[in-house]
Simulated assay, not measured.
Amino acid sequence: MGLTGSIKGVAEIGRLAQGLTEVFVPNRTAAQALDHEAQRAALDQLEAEFGRSGRGGFDHAVDGLNRLPRPLLALGTLGLFVYAMSAPVGFAARMQGLAYVPDPLWWLLGAIVSFYFGAREMHYLRRPSVRPRPAAVHSAWEAGPAPETGEDADNPALAEWRSGRS
């Protein structure tokens, strides 16, 4: 009876020690399970959002239109440079025409562009990001001294360093 009680006591001490060590060093298995659950939840969310759920042609057309403003602005600006070089007189006439646009209309254009890109930026800032945890990196410094090999024998600096450490 005494032996059984002492074995149970040792097991209890082991469980307490494990619980105490998990305060300082997290349980890697549990952390990996939680990371896996978070990754799976993110993938399920993406599948629900972007999966083929019987969306019609209209939805695909609107998605395509939503992807157009940034490329059109970039390519349109490059097109203005090409137009200015190829037809400077026509370009100058159009730019003089822009001088007649009233200020409130410029403000409205600025507000529309700002809200479009600002809302897009806020969308990406507000959504939760699940990033995979990088793998642990073990360097030669953490691994301890390397065993003496034949290829290290011809390196006098390495031999001196090893002999000075021991």
Rank of each mutant, 00 (worst) to 15 (best):
G2F: 12
G2S: 14
T4Q: 14
T4I: 10
T4M: 12
I7A: 15
K8N: 11
E12Q: 12
I13D: 10
R15A: 13
L16Q: 12
Q18G: 09
G19S: 08
G19N: 07
L20V: 04
T21V: 15
V23H: 14
V23I: 13
P26D: 04
N27W: 03
N27K: 03
A31I: 02
Q32I: 10
L34F: 04
L34S: 09
H36Y: 09
E37V: 08
E37W: 06
Q39A: 15
Q39Y: 10
Q39E: 13
R40Y: 08
R40G: 12
A41E: 08
A41W: 01
L43R: 12
L43P: 01
D44G: 11
A48V: 02
A48T: 02
E49W: 02
E49I: 05
E49D: 03
F50W: 14
F50V: 14
F50I: 13
S53F: 08
S53I: 06
R55F: 08
G56S: 13
G56Q: 10
G57C: 06
G57P: 02
F58W: 13
F58I: 06
A61C: 05
V62L: 14
G64E: 04
G64K: 13
G64Y: 15
L65N: 09
N66T: 12
N66I: 12
R67T: 07
R67D: 01
R67P: 00
L68T: 15
R70E: 07
L73H: 03
L75F: 07
L75E: 07
T77F: 01
L78G: 14
G79F: 00
G79N: 09
G79V: 00
Y83S: 14
A84H: 03
A87V: 10
V89E: 15
V89L: 14
A92Q: 06
A92F: 09
A93C: 01
R94E: 13
Q96I: 06
G97F: 05
A99P: 02
Y100Q: 03
V101Y: 07
P102T: 02
P102I: 05
P102D: 04
P104G: 00
P104N: 00
W106K: 00
W107D: 11
L108Y: 12
G110F: 10
G110Y: 08
G110V: 06
V113L: 14
S114K: 07
Y116H: 13
Y116M: 14
F117W: 11
A119M: 11
E121F: 09
E121L: 10
E121K: 12
M122T: 04
H123F: 02
H123R: 05
Y124F: 09
Y124M: 04
S129K: 15
S129D: 07
R133M: 04
P134T: 00
A135S: 11
A135F: 12
A136E: 12
A136L: 14
V137Y: 04
E142V: 08
P147K: 00
E148M: 05
E148Q: 06
T149N: 02
G150R: 03
G150Y: 13
E151L: 10
D154I: 01
N155Y: 05
N155A: 01
A157S: 05
L158D: 13
R165K: 05
